[in-house]
């Protein structure tokens, strides 16, 4: 029952996104622009790129993620859809997990697109795909779970577009550190280290916390 509700919400979100492609187009374009700008900040042809390249990659993901996450609940504001959703028999936990799942899919799609661009620009292609995808899945889930909760929290605020990044980026720091370290190791061909366990633990802790708190945020 819970899973079906989750699936309905996620499918609804993905469906409406597929129809307009607003967030996708914007965040894909944005991530390419960011990757281009980073090339001017650092020397992209140097050997050091292997060391901080993963940092650029994850910062691109975090920035692109904010665009996707900002839309997640704001999309429901028109025609009071959010109130209707909250009033519907779907529990707020199911609503939240469904939204998070939809955001995860969208952000992951954006990441899949910008990964080869990163590989081309910064000469890190081809990476070892299996471990890289594992980090991307775990890291992206952590980013979306935090981001979706704060998206729900900021949706009715004045200055929503400003409040979301200021609140969300400090919260994302542990994930980003872990993901960047592991990705650096993966790109350099080293073992991944114990950061993987940290990411799994972070995912579990914050998924639980978010599910516990989402009712307080949405309903009160």
């Amino acid at each position: 029952m819970f899973l079906r509700q989750v699936w309905t919400v996620a499918a609804k979100d993905l469906h409406s996104e597929l129809r307009t492609k607003e967030a996708w187009n914007a965040s894909i374009a944005f991530s390419v622009v960011i990757l281009l700008l980073f090339a001017f900040a650092f020397d992209p042809s140097s050997e050091q790129i292997r060391e901080f390249g993963s940092g650029l990659l994850w910062m691109t993901y975090a920035f692109a993620g904010a665009l996707v996450l900002n839309r997640s609940f704001a999309r429901e504001l028109q025609n009071d859809c959010l109130d209707a959703l909250i009033a519907s028999p779907v529990s707020s936990a199911a609503l939240f997990v469904g939204k998070a799942l939809a955001n995860f899919t969208m952000l992951f799609a954006v990441e899949l697109f910008s990964l080869p661009v990163f590989g081309l620009f910064y000469n890190t292609w081809p990476p070892r795909f299996a471990p890289l995808f594992l980090v991307m899945v775990l890291g992206t889930w952590a980013l979306t779970i935090i981001g979706t909760l704060f998206s729900a929290l900021t949706v009715n605020l004045r200055l929503r577009e400003l409040m979301l990044p200021t609140l969300v980026y400090p919260m994302m720091i542990p994930v980003l550190i872990a993901a960047m370290t592991i990705t650096t190791n993966v790109l350099a061909g080293n073992p991944m280290g114990f950061g993987m366990r940290f990411l799994v633990a972070f995912d579990i802790i914050f998924t639980l916390l978010a599910v516990v708190f989402v009712d307080t945020v949405l309903v009160g």
Partner: peptide, 16 residues
């Protein structure tokens, strides 16, 4: 909510 999540997160940041 922000205070609770923030404190948990601050501790995790410290450790990480």
């Amino acid at each position: 909510v922000v205070s609770v999540l923030g404190t948990v997160n601050a501790y995790i940041s410290y450790k990480s």
